[in-house]
Design a binder for these strands. Structure first.
Ligand SMILES: [Mn+2]
Ligand SMILES: [Mn+2]
Ligand SMILES: [Mn+2]
Ligand SMILES: [Mn+2]
Lengths: 223, 223
DNA sequence: AAATATTTTTAGACAAATCTAAAAATTTAA
DNA sequence: TTAAATTTTTAGATTTGTCTAAAAATATTT
């Protein structure tokens, strides 16, 4: 029932990979964790033995229900700690990942439930990602990638797909943050860049690469 | 420069043992960490190699300046986290030790300095123990064990030498907490128990064993 | 379909941290 | 000052998590 930090890092990574792909490959985990494929195979045998995943050699693998539940518990801790670091200790959002990567492995249900209450049971972390509750339930996020957002509709930036400080400084230069109102005004086929209006006034150009990392939800009230 | 959690636990334990004894023995560390003497010897070789302690086989050992500095850093983290757990997350003082034992190993200077500021740079932890600052300096605590406190002098409970919940419940039953005013009114030679007055009104009897775990400082103002 | 490339697994090794059992050194007692 | 008891160290294993190199399986080209 208690897992090592190494096991937890694998579980979390596999969970995130299978959200997109369904089935996960040895190499994709190795790449994500910056380790060797051989190490991944070793760990897969262990996690299979502990009945956290479905795995047949050479056939790929995925977490079963027990594995998914475990993963959501780790993700819950990671995102609550990130929220604590940003909201309470005034870290910037690009400074929290490494520390949360350690804090997520602290074993204490009492700790994480008290932290959750202290933070006011937040629904989203500083990057706009949903925080699972103690039962593993997450608010569903009807977010759309900015590249797929219709023209002239006002939405709200609700999450960013990267946590690099390079991206943070670019966003802050363009006066974009989580919660900013945004509408796509024009699409330029040549370089796939778009022109957007921020908070109903500022017009800025956004590269295709940046747009791929921004997620928007439609405003549920008139702009 | 970064140490493993196992190394840090040894360093902290040796520091605390050498505060009393000066020189530390293999067995005393083994007992404190509930491990085998052989494991202690193994670790001593490693810590000597890393130049944290003075050690000659069969002769005992002690931390050098680098080792002491490292120990104080770990103790700082441990006590700041305990303060956070009690003051902010409303843990009871007998519930924090195990979690702080994990949290003390999180590696991030930024984290611990921000936490320190957020807590208001506290000088003492919930058990009354002094918290080293980021340079390793600790407030000197002129505390006296209750068994050595003179008769009829009013003092203040400032620290407890144990964190067991058995002790906590006993203290709360006697209406004693950190900050309580206390004076020793009578000494009973038969069982070495003492009668004390709490907050200038309540008379209670304290066993020799309990008194050994209570530390008192003289009030610097008139009672 | 065969050849080639890629992915995955196995084999064997290593460092960290632990253990038990036995040997060596030191301390205490007779 | 020997003998006995205690403490400490060594020797040899074990578990966890990692690695590299080589073999096996699968996928992609030609
Ligand atoms: Mn992690
Ligand atoms: Mn996040
Ligand atoms: Mn610890
Ligand atoms: Mn304490």
């Amino acid at each position: 029932m208690p897992f090592t930090a190494a096991e937890e890092n694998y579980i979390k990574t596999i969970f995130q990979l299978q959200l997109n792909e369904g089935m996960v490959s040895t190499n994709s985990v190795a790449t994500a964790l910056e380790t060797s494929a051989a190490s991944v195979t070793d760990m897969l045998k262990k996690l299979k033995l502990k009945k956290l995943l479905v795995y047949e050699k050479y056939k790929g693998f995925k977490l079963n229900n027990e594995g998914k539940k475990t993963a959501l518990g780790i993700i819950r801790k990671h995102r609550l700690w990130e929220t604590f670091l940003v909201n309470i200790l005034h870290f910037k959002w690009d400074e929290v990942h490494e520390v949360a990567e350690q804090l997520e492995h602290i074993q204490s249900n009492q700790l994480i439930d008290h932290l959750d209450d202290f933070l006011g049971n937040p629904q989203f972390d500083p990057h706009g990602d949903p925080i699972p509750d103690s039962a593993g339930k997450m608010p569903i996020l009807s977010q759309i990638n900015l590249t797929k957002f219709p023209l002239h509709v006002v939405g709200e930036i609700c999450s960013v797909g990267s946590q690099s400080s390079d991206m943070l400084s670019l966003l802050s230069h363009k006066h974009i943050e989580i919660g900013s109102k945004i509408s796509v005004e024009q699409y330029f086929a040549f370089d796939e860049s778009i022109e957007v209006k921020i908070n109903n006034k500022l017009l800025v150009n956004i590269s295709a690469k940046l747009a791929q990392h921004l997620y928007v939800k439609k405003m549920n009230y008139a702009s």
